[in-house]
Amino acid sequence: MVAKVKKVGLPPLNVAESLYVTELVRGLITTNRHFWRNWFRRKDTATLEYPDKRRPYSARWRGLHRLMLRENGTPRCVACMMCSTHCPAGCITIVAREHPDPAIEKVPASFEIDLLKCIFCGFCEEACPCDAIRVDSGVHAPPVYGRDEAIIDLEDLLSRGSQSTAKQGGRNL
């Protein structure tokens, strides 16, 4: 397909414009107007003085993941891998291990999220049957020097966690 090229000529100048002087004066009037208007009240200025003032976050802003805690402070996660199965980016790597308490049975030995792969869609949170992972900390993904540092581990995820009182495993456990 050949792109249609539309040729645009210069607009013809009238006598006043072709002298440039009138246009020069108009330009000076414009900059002058901006100067005085902005000097007395800064209405047109869109600049946000960032570190001092911050824009409010959207209500839908999620931030980094976190792993919730049981009442005794241990992770709620049972390493069922629903989140890693559901993850469209494939950024969650879980290694499970046996929990000494047979009532809990399974806990993650390691729980790693590659923030470079993560798209922060929140599917992991929706897939989680235990209210263990949440994507609501509001914390920004930190800048890193290497790809390895962008992988957050179990300890980091738990450090943002808080206690969840959601009932596990249905009504009449």
């Binding site: 900059t31 901006h34 100067f35 200025t45 600049t47 003085e49």
Partner: peptide, 13 residues
């Protein structure tokens, strides 16, 4: 400062 104010910026502060 003047260039900033003319261009709707804040300028040195």
């Amino acid at each position: 400062k003047m260039s900033a104010v003319i261009q709707d910026r804040i300028g040195p502060n």
